[in-house]
C-alpha cells in the first residue's frame, strides 16, 4: 500500500482492534457511537475512557459529516481503533474536502464570561474539546482521502 511518513513507524497498524466502515450521516454516526461504546465496554475499557472517547469521536465524526462532506449523505467513512494499555489510538478516514489550509483547526476554547451572558459562545467548542482530550493529532491526505489520527491517553490532563 506504500503508506508514508509516520504510518510506517507504528508496527500494529495493519490490524486495528475495532474497525468500522459507515456511510456519512448524523444518524449513522450516532449508531456507530453506540456500537463503539458497547465494544469498548466489552473490551474492558474504563467507563471514564469510554466517555472521553465518545466525546472525541462524536466531534471528529460529525465534523466529517458537516464539513468534509457538507451534509451529503452516503459518502464513505472509516474508523480504526487500537486499544493499548496506555490509551486509545484512533484513525478516521474520509473522501471529503480537505481541512481548511490543510491543517487541524487550532481549537482554542472559546472565552466564557459568566458575567456577560449575551456574549456566551454558542459554538467553537468541538476542536477545542478534541485538542484538550487527545495527544499527537496528525492530519494528512493520502490517496485522495483525509486521514486523521490521534491518541487518547489513559490519563489526560484537561487543559
Amino acid at each position: 500500500m506504500g503508506r508514508a511518513g509516520t504510518a510506517s513507524a507504528l508496527p500494529d497498524l495493519a490490524s486495528p482492534d475495532l474497525h468500522h466502515r459507515l456511510t456519512a450521516g448524523m444518524g449513522a454516526v450516532r449508531r456507530l457511537l453506540d456500537v463503539l461504546r458497547a465494544e469498548m465496554g466489552d473490551a474492558q475499557v474504563s467507563a471514564e475512557m469510554n466517555d472521553t472517547s465518545q466525546i472525541i469521536m462524536a466531534e471528529v465524526l460529525n465534523n466529517v459529516v458537516e464539513h468534509a462532506y457538507g451534509f451529503a449523505h452516503g459518502q464513505p467513512m472509516e474508523v480504526s481503533i487500537w486499544l493499548r494499555p496506555d490509551g486509545i489510538l484512533c484513525e478516521v478516514r474520509d473522501e471529503g474536502v480537505p481541512m481548511p489550509w490543510g491543517r487541524v483547526p487550532a481549537g482554542v476554547m472559546p472565552v466564557v464570561d459568566q458575567d456577560r451572558p449575551a456574549t456566551l459562545p454558542e459554538g467553537g467548542f468541538g476542536w477545542a474539546l478534541v485538542r484538550d482530550l487527545t495527544q499527537d493529532i496528525q492530519y494528512w491526505r493520502e490517496q485522495d482521502q483525509n486521514r486523521l489520527r490521534f491518541f487518547i491517553p489513559a490519563e489526560v490532563e484537561a487543559d
Partner: peptide
C-alpha cells in the same frame, strides 16, 4: 447520557434567548 459541542451550543443558545 451524552452531550456534544452542538448540544452544548444549543443549551447556551436557549439560555441566552431567555433574556437577562
Amino acid at each position: 447520557e451524552f452531550l456534544d459541542s452542538s448540544g452544548l451550543g444549543a443549551i447556551v443558545a436557549v439560555y441566552k434567548a431567555l433574556g437577562p
